[in-house]
Simulated assay, not measured.
Amino acid sequence: IKVSLTLSLLSFSLCQERQYYFVKKFLNWDEAQRYCRKHHTDLATIGNSKDVKQFLDIVSSADDDVWIGLYSNINWTWSGLLNRWWDYDCAKKFPFVCYNGNISVVNKFVAVDEAMSWSNARTYCRHNFTDLATIGNIKENQWVQTLVPTGYWAWTGLYRDENIYWSDKSSFGFSNWDHISNLIGSDARICGATSKARSAKWKFLPCQTRLPFVCYSFKGEFYRSLVKQMTDLGRKFSR
């Protein structure tokens, strides 16, 4: 039943045109989600370029970031103790730090002053040393920092699966990312925001940030009512 209801909702949603509503209340992401589910259908899902255009029209009066229905659960491959690492587009090219597991602890980190994407940097480190740097404690973090000049970026071996979702459980296909860094720190979840100034391109922020937000429903009261009922049923059977 759960699968059937979810598929029915997604199939119906893709066939209808979304109507967006800008809400100038400063709430955190979870509060904004509850508000949208109570008064509309959910926080805004943006599924295609037509949605982007309509979304920009709605937020024309917004001066800064607004919440949308995007979120990501953080699942790091290895964990660290400090919150000075940043999430960045893996296709960007930066210098990087490798580690060599065959030499002394003091000298095991090696800075490579050649700009590569994250995957190419990992390949280089695995071919010439052991792997991209794994940082397991504060002392190692401080040592790696001495190898990277102040104000510069360098890849390390930390990465995560995307785990990106829409609040209304729509499939994640269309994307409109802003190519900026996201400070994640120790957060277990980060939430999606966008702005008129950035042409509705998406980024992640800490979910407790208080922002205005955009809800959506489908055009026409009948569609809104029907989808809300289906969404509520889907949540009931997914518990």
Rank of each mutant, 00 (worst) to 15 (best):
S117G: 13
F94V: 01
F94H: 12
F172G: 01
A115E: 13
F94D: 01
C125S: 02
S181D: 04
S186N: 12
L132I: 06
R126T: 07
K196G: 01
W153V: 01
N137Y: 03
G157Q: 06
Q145V: 01
F96Y: 14
V106S: 13
N128S: 11
S170K: 08
A193S: 15
I138S: 10
I103M: 08
S186K: 13
W177S: 03
K196D: 00
F174H: 11
F129D: 00
A193Q: 09
D113Y: 09
S181V: 11
I138A: 14
Y152A: 09
A115Q: 11
K169I: 10
T146E: 09
G157W: 08
W166N: 03
W177E: 02
I180Q: 13
L132S: 06
V148L: 06
H127C: 00
N137A: 04
I180S: 15
W155D: 06
Y124R: 04
F109M: 06
R126V: 05
K92I: 03
Y165S: 13
S175R: 12
D161W: 09
G101N: 14
N100S: 14
P149I: 03
C125F: 03
N141F: 12
W153M: 10
A197Q: 13
T156S: 08
I190D: 00
I135R: 04
Y165E: 02
Y99R: 09
F174W: 12
A197H: 08
R122C: 05
W155S: 07
D161H: 11
R189V: 15
